[in-house]
Structure formats: structure tokens, C-alpha cells
Amino acid sequence: MSIATRSVERGDSSITVGPPDHNNRSRKRRQFTRRRAWTILGFLAPSAIFVTIFTYYPMLSGSQMAFRNWNLNDLSNTDWVGFNNFIEIFANADFWGVLGNTVLWVVGSLIPQFLIGFALALWLRRRFFLRGVYQAFIFFPWAVSGFLIGILFRWMFNGEFGVINDLLLKTGLIETPIPWLSDPHFAMTAIIIANVWYGVTFFAIMILAALQSVPDDLFESSAIDGAGKIRTLFSITIPYIRATLALTVLLRIIWIFNFPDIIYGMTGGGPAGQTHIVTTFMIDLTQQGNYGQASAVGLIVVLVLLVFSTFYLMAMREKKEQ
């Protein structure tokens, strides 16, 4: 508030008719709101400063690189090139393969994660002996970085000395070792298995929390009505927690889409680039120094996720209104 307006207000107050303490109170309130504004500002400032300088600035400046000829190998010419980087990416046959892989990676990881996570949550809802310990144990994958998970599974899926082939051979499920990481199809399967192993816990936790918000009488009354377990699940439990389920799935889709760590540690996108998803592809471009195209891929990812999230949320809302 400027000094001029303040003095006008003070001037006004002298001609105000009415109880004097009213005026006093409103000044106090103004003082209070001003102090409140400073508190909000002061408490938020440190985080705002860090996030603006070290997250937003590089992100925005990375976005503009998508429209420039930005290559670390030749910095003599960093001109604006419009949509050239995007055109080159769309003309690159590899990119479409990468996009296909990304969809496979997201859908292939999400569905088993969801189903196993849901089953775990249903069975963990009721208390049992050592349930807390069990929960702490299945939390284990979360303590490991995605990159290290990639390495662990790379070792277990090793074609010659890997324990997974050994177990499969011993149980008689296969007769010759599977070249897990040197065959594109098997490699894709292997990275998805690793991701499922990692991601189930998240679903289990979120769905369990949602299930615990369902009032017990709801289950009981449905049991009295003679509804079977399966029917209770589909006609009572799932509709009740639908909103949480939908949100959890959306967050997961965004997250798996953006999650290169396991692949980076496990196959590095190989064999012959066959397990690249958009974000590992982006890392590859960055490591080649091709910042312009890498940024363009990044913007495409953001756009795709934004459009997808919008449609997804709209579809959810429509269903709710029906």
C-alpha cells in the first residue's frame, strides 16, 4: 500500500461519523493483514528462491534450446531454427520405435503393478500377526535407487551366470538358457519385470490407504445382503475408492513415462537401441551433446502428458456425472 493512499484514508477517518473504536479496529485489521502477508511471503521465500533459480530457470532455458541449433560439439552457431529440431525428430525412424517402446513400457508395467498392488492391499486390509513387519519388508524396493535396481536385475538376468536362467532351468520351465538382455523382446520383458517388482509397493500402499477409508459397515451391510466377496469388491469397494484409484493410476502413468533409471542401469537402451523409451533416448541425445534435439524430445513428452492428463481427468469427471 502506498503512502499516498494511506494518508488519504487517514484523512477520511477524521470526517468519519460513527463510533471511534470502529475506525481503530479497521486500522488494526489492516495492520494484521499486512503482517500476515509478510509472514506468508517470508516463509515461502526460501523455497521459492531455490526452486526458481535451480529448477525453473534451467527448465525454461532448456525449453528454448529446443528451438535452437544447440549442439555441444559445435557451439559456433546456436541460431534459432524454429521447429527444425522437432521436424528432424519426427523424421527419425528411431523416434517412432522409441515411442512404441514407451507405450509398451508404461502399459506393460502399469497393469501388473496395479493388479498385484490391489491384491496385496485387499489382503493387508485386515490386521494379522506381524502385518506391520510384513509391510516394512515389502517396502524394501523403495530404499533402492532405480539405477541400482537396474544393475541388480541386470546381474540376475545375465544370460550365462544369471540366477533367473538357473532357476528356470532347474525347475524345468526352459531347456536352454534365455539370452535375456541380448534379445530385444526378452530385454523388453526383463526391464518390465524389474519395473513391476519396483512399482507394486506404491500401488499397494496407496490402495491400502484408500481401502482403510471405506467404512466397515459398508462391507458388513453388503455381507448381510448376501453379496459374495467378488461382488462386494466390484459393486461396493471399487466404486467407493474410484477417485483415489484414478488419481493414483494417473500419477503412476506420468511417473513411469518419465522413469529412465531402471532401463539406464539394466540395458542402457540396448541391445541396439531396442529398449529405449523417450527419456533414455533423451539422455542419449544429451550425452551426444545434442541439447537442441534432447530438449525438443522433452517438450514433446511434456505436451503428450499434458494432453493425456487433460483427457483422462475429463473422462473421469464425465463418468462421475453419469
Binding site: G62, I254, V302
Partner: peptide, 18 residues
């Protein structure tokens, strides 16, 4: 919103400029 958005954008877009 500004906090949430940072969780959705692929961090690699920022690596070079950073």
C-alpha cells in the same frame, strides 16, 4: 501448482542449461 509441475517435467530437459 508450481511445486507439482516440477514433479511432472522430465528433469533431463534442465540438465544441459543447469
Amino acid at each position: 501448482g508450481a511445486f507439482l509441475v516440477t514433479q511432472m517435467i522430465p528433469a533431463f530437459i534442465a540438465l544441459g542449461p543447469l
